[in-house]
Design a protein around this nucleic acid. Structure first.
Length: 430
RNA sequence: UCCCCGGUAGCUCAAUUGGUAGAGCGGGUGGCUGUUAACCACUAGGUCGGGGGUUCGAGUCCCUCCCGGGGAGCCA
């Protein structure tokens, strides 16, 4: 008997085939039962009758949800079936009769679902999100590949602080004492620039922030790019081209998943260059006009970002923040030493910051002073400072948060659904 | 770390001014040959998060601890 995927049903109409999968749902009506079977490629309504199966029917009728089965039957067109095809099952082999599945057909609370994440991923909604994530990551890699970037896998164990020393996870590392889980791959990307020109990395990053919000995870994935001989303006042009490409391609490829997620893609389709650009100064005066009492020099809070994004129908860059609010490696604005050449990219519809980027400080003395001003140990950064001693060039880069981007594309309320197994301050299981 | 909200059946929730703990789903049993979270009938199922206190009487009020959730700061 020919084995096939459920997704191949349209080409198998009238034929007798075998499918292998799990019972996603079951309904019965006396002597006929409907088994909804999921095989990873799609879902299929299997029709079983006492007439066809004989004694096995009584067991099938009571088969627990999520039991694994091998079903053989004829593929027929049926408008009432999901997908337009169903299988008239002639033989059903029960591979494993499941225990009562904890996740029912009705709603559950977040605590229960997160504690059963290993089973929750089977739900159609979660599977759809994970497929969108897969497509997004594939398209990110494709964009970089198409545009001459080289992948550089940066280390997870590090001895330098990427962003801020207070948010590091430390690990005992043999005789070397403490090392830290990487907060960013950026510094290492910078080191490979003179070798490779345009580079990127895509991997997990770790931040021990005591954050309990819908936008934070302690372990999250980030795509970071770094380009030599690239200034701040060119960096923004790259980012808007990059984001437009990955969003457009992903919503096109995963249209059916987004329909299932009830995501209205009207706004997403507007993600095309150029994006809006406002300066930090303009952002402050905008917020003050809206009634905020924010002072120049303060970082923008979540509420402030929401107010700003609501004024625009596509992503917006906020440029040139005060130097003291940003990381040590950002390049001082030659015209305004109190500011740095950087930009955050805010996604619309309240999704907030999805990219942080900047031109990097390429002057040895300025960088050394900033490292000292930030109470960082220059000895630990010797290798990073070296990069400004041997052919320093203007260069820029950015980092895109994968989960925030998935949440934006899918219209999720919380980033915890955007990663297969979320890690949060009070949750590392399963 | 701080602020707010919550913890009652396997799950989601209800229980009026403090007065003998309830529903839906899920489970079990039975019925139904075209169901769409199928439906109908019956049925089992509880140390009301833990501890202490007030009271004739506490799921309900007070104290304390534990565990979650949302937000702030910080960030992607």
């Amino acid at each position: 008997m020919e084995q096939c995927s459920i997704s191949e049903f349209p080409a198998q109409e009238g034929k007798t085939v075998t499918i292998k999968g799990w019972v996603a749902n079951r309904r019965s009506s006396g002597k006929v039962s409907f088994l909804i079977i999921r095989d990873g490629s799609g879902i299929c309504q299997g029709v079983v009758t006492k007439q066809d199966l004989g004694d096995v029917y009584n067991e099938v009728k009571k088969l627990p949800l999520e039991s694994s089965v091998i079903a053989t039957g004829t593929v027929v067109q049926e408008t009432k079936a999901p997908g337009g095809y169903e299988m008239q099952i002639q033989a059903l082999d029960i591979v494993h009769k499941a225990d009562e599945f904890p996740i029912g057909k009705k709603e559950h609370g977040p605590d229960f679902l997160l504690s059963h994440r290993h089973l929750w991923v089977r739900s159609a909604r979660q599977a759809a999100i994970l497929r969108v994530r897969d497509a997004l990551i594939r398209n990110i890699r494709e964009y970089f590949y198409n545009n001459g970037f080289t992948l550089v896998d940066t280390p997870i164990f590090t001895t330098t602080y990427g962003e801020d020393s207070t948010n590091l996870f430390s690990v005992d590392y043999f005789d070397l004492g403490k090392v830290y889980l990487a907060q960013t791959g950026q510094l290492y990307l910078e080191a490979t620039l003179p070798a490779l020109g345009k580079v990127y990395c895509l991997g997990p990053t770790f931040r021990a922030e005591l954050s309990k919000t819908r936008r934070h995870l302690t372990e999250f994935w980030m795509a970071e790019a770094e380009v030599a001989f690239c200034d701040h303006k060119e960096n923004l042009a790259l980012q808007e081209d990059f984001v437009s490409y990955i969003v457009q391609k992903t919503i096109k490829e995963k249209a059916s998943e987004l329909v299932y997620l009830e995501r209205d893609t009207m706004q997403l389709e507007k993600t095309t260059p150029p994006f809006h650009r406002i300066s930090y100064d303009e952002a402050i005066s905008l917020l003050r006009k809206k009634g905020s009492d924010i002072q120049w020099g303060a970082d923008l809070g979540g509420d402030d970002e929401t107010i700003i994004t609501k004024l625009f129908d596509k992503p917006v860059f906020i440029e040139n923040y005060p130097k003291k609010t940003k990381a040590f490696y950002m390049k001082q604005d030659p015209d305004r030493p109190e500011c740095v050449l950087c930009a955050d990219l805010l996604a619309p519809e309240g999704y907030g910051e999805i990219i942080g980027g900047s031109q990097r400080e390429d002057n040895y003395d300025v960088l050394l002073n900033t490292i000292k001003d930030n109470q960082l140990d220059p000895d630990r950064y010797k290798w990073y400072l070296d990069l400004r001693q041997y052919g320093s060039v203007p260069h820029s880069g950015f980092g895109l948060g994968i989960e925030r981007c998935v949440a934006w594309i899918c219209g999720l309320k919380h980033v915890r659904e955007a990663i297969p197994f979320p890690r949060m301050i009070y949750r590392a299981y399963p």
